[in-house]
């Protein structure tokens, strides 16, 4: 070992440089493959935002892998070749620092993260999913505002659909379409920008559709404008992502993306259905709890299920 460390002291020799070059090359190849692979760790992309998010994530996975493998290889090298033999009580090389190296590893990370941030800002600007936010004092005011047609300019723009009112409760989802149809599963037209008013009636909820890679909190006391473009037909999961108490885990429903024609057809059909209580998993669990003697820790009871034209089908199979 002493030979090796003596040999590599001083200016870098061609052989060392060659070894480093090969190591970096291998690291680079592995990082590219990880970046590629990273797409498979995510659900199927089903919105205009998804490819941007996935590419950004792949980029970071690639860079991250490169750095991680680089660091771990050096650590591994020292573990293999710089171990003190038993009973060797000597000290290592008393290197106290190296200005050039220290400057490099200050500047390089700085440049990398700033480039990522710059890229991320551009992506956010392209997606432009988040609209304005209006403060209200209660649910009644929120509903009135949402229905008053005081739309932000984007939500009534041509080529878009909406606004759909998204109402979050403990623990149910309710969607109200411009023609008055109400449902507990969300139907959206393909390739159109759909706009939403996000309203929470009791506590904070999170409007999260993993296949769309989008999430937005819904905050009591605010009406938040939001919009997105679904790009793939199918049935996806919509989950409450902000912890909302007792039956938070059950506060899930589906998003159904259909071609524009199918969607219009669904809207017309739905308007002819009678209003009935939507399927509500939280209520089912709560009634079971009461039947079993109301054991467990305190929770507020679930709000009454919303009266809707179309209810969620708990047996339906979602893509992702």
């Amino acid at each position: 070992m002493t030979n090796l460390s003596a040999a590599s002291a001083g200016p870098l020799r061609p052989r060392t440089l060659g070894l480093v070059a090969i190591a970096l090359l291998l690291d680079g190849v592995a990082s590219l493959r990880m970046a590629d692979w990273s797409h498979q760790w995510l659900p199927l992309p089903a919105s205009a935002a998804a490819p941007y998010v996935d590419d950004l994530f792949a980029l970071e996975t690639g860079i991250g892998t490169f750095i991680f493998l680089g660091c771990v290889s050096v650590i591994g090298w020292t573990l293999l070749f710089n171990r003190a033999p038993k009973y060797d009580m000597d000290d290592g090389d008393p290197i106290e620092g190296n200005l050039r190296l220290e400057i490099t590893w200050t500047i390089l990370p700085l440049v990398i993260v700033m480039l990522i941030a710059w890229h991320a800002i551009r992506v956010s600007d392209t997606l432009a999913t988040l609209g304005g936010k209006v403060r209200v004092t209660g649910t009644a005011e929120a509903m009135a505002l949402a229905n008053s047609g005081a739309e932000s300019s984007r939500s009534v723009a041509a080529g878009s659909f909406g606004p759909i009112e998204v109402i979050g409760r403990q623990w149910s989802w309710e969607f109200v379409y411009p023609n008055g149809v109400r449902s507990t599963e969300l139907h959206l037209p393909l390739n159109l920008r759909s706009s939403f008013h996000l309203i929470a009636t009791d506590v904070i909820h999170g409007f999260f559709i993993p296949a769309f890679r989008l999430k937005q909190d819904m905050i009591p006391g605010s009406v938040i404008d939001y919009s997105l473009i679904p790009t793939r037909v199918g049935r996806y999961r919509l989950r409450d992502s902000m912890f909302s108490g007792g039956y938070f885990s059950s506060n899930q429903t589906d998003v159904v993306v259909e071609s524009e024609a199918d969607f219009q057809h669904w809207l017309e059909q739905a308007a002819r259905q009678p209003l009935k209580p939507g399927y509500n998993e939280a209520r089912r669990l709560y009634e079971k709890r009461l039947a079993e003697g109301d054991r467990g820790w305190a929770t507020v009871p679930p709000a009454p299920p919303p009266l809707v034209h179309v209810s969620t089908n708990p047996a339906a199979v979602h893509v992702s």
Partner: peptide, 10 residues
């Protein structure tokens, strides 16, 4: 990491 480099690891 640089502290480990060419040390005598125990």
């Amino acid at each position: 990491i640089a502290t480990l480099w060419r040390g005598k690891l125990r």
